[in-house]
Nucleic acid binder design. Structure first.
Length: 296
DNA sequence: TCGATTTGACCCGT
DNA sequence: ACGGGTCAAATCGA
């Protein structure tokens, strides 16, 4: 294992410990909000570091692109047109898992159009390929891949590649509910599958909702993002949440550039999201600190 | 009728 | 040669 990978694992382990500590705090309502915010900030910093290390590592392995289209018709069959090889900017892959619908069309606030499906060697279930509906109208390069988990049919693994550059996000749901379900996964898909399975037993899928806080530095091409998971918690009037669970999963967000805060529903119906929104905008304030970006 | 999905072939990296 | 990603004609369905 490379040194960088060890460092990243070390950072992530630390983040996990802090998340557990935060969960413990949340179980005891006596702990102060400031203490919780400090923990959140620390967790963010740790993940920031880990992602930064990985992005450095990624830069070493520059992605190879497909070569530009060449017009040679020498051996192409007449019945098929030449394949267009568009330049694609594929950024770091984001992976998260979702539960619920059988068709795998996980609602994430964007319009997707399926353009392919493939049987994957070694997998029982095929992988479906989706691109943003606004790919041609707005040159949006966002792409996602959805594959049903082999181990748990109720779990879908979703990979996001590229970022949405379109302006056609579906309207944020009217929220009100307080049940939130959020997952993060960057490098531990297997573990996440387990976590989601466990969570799906504890939380009614119909009420699940994903809240994503996403930070990305596109200019630096680091595609850095932050996400949090606050499953099964409730927000009170002060914008603090009352939580009984914190599963400590990660889930990459689906879109956006720069700093974004986004609510995406998996099968959910919400009313009254103001408290949640205000909470997360306060989180943005925490996140949007100079120290956070100083490492970049 | 037209947009979305399906599906087999093509392209490319390993 | 093989596997994964994408294309695009055919098909579906609202």
């Amino acid at each position: 294992m490379m040194m960088e990978e060890k460092l990243v694992i070390s950072e992530l382990e630390l983040g996990k410990d802090l998340a557990n500590q935060l969960m413990s705090n949340l179980k005891h309502t006596s702990s102060s909000a400031d203490s919780n915010k400090t923990l959140i900030s620390e967790i963010l910093r740790i993940y920031q570091n880990a992602i930064f290390m990985l992005s450095l590592n990624e830069d070493k392995n520059t992605l190879k692109r497909r070569s530009p289209e060449i017009d040679d018709d020498k051996d192409s069959k007449i019945m098929f047109k030449k394949r267009k090889t568009s330049e694609k900017k594929t950024e770091k892959v984001k992976v998260f898992v979702a539960t619920g619908q059988d068709n795998g069309s996980i609602e994430d606030g964007h319009c997707w159009r399926k353009y392919g499906q493939k049987e994957i060697h070694g997998s029982k279930n095929p992988r479906a390929y989706y691109r943003c509906t606004h790919r041609f109208t707005q040159n949006c390069v966002a792409v996602k891949q959805v594959q049903k988990s082999d181990t748990d049919p109720s779990v879908y693994e979703v990979k996001y590649l590229g970022n949405h550059t379109c302006n056609n996000n579906m309207a944020s749901p009217k929220a009100t509910t307080t049940t939130m379900n959020f997952s993060v996964s960057m490098f531990e898909e297997e573990r996440n599958r387990v976590n989601v399975t466990e969570r799906s037993e504890e939380i009614k899928p119909k009420k699940s909702e994903e809240v994503m806080i996403n930070l990305e530095d596109l200019e630096n091409k680091k595609n850095i993002f932050r996400t949090f998971s606050f499953p099964n918690h409730e927000f009170n009037e002060n914008g603090q949440w009352k939580s009984n669970l914190f599963l400590g999963e990660l889930s990459p967000a689906t879109s956006g550039s720069g700093i974004t805060s986004e609510i995406v529903t998996a099968p959910a119906s919400l009313e009254n999201s103001e408290t949640a929104d205000s909470y997360f905008s306060s989180l943005d304030n925490i996140i949007d600190q100079d120290w956070l970006w100083s490492a970049l």
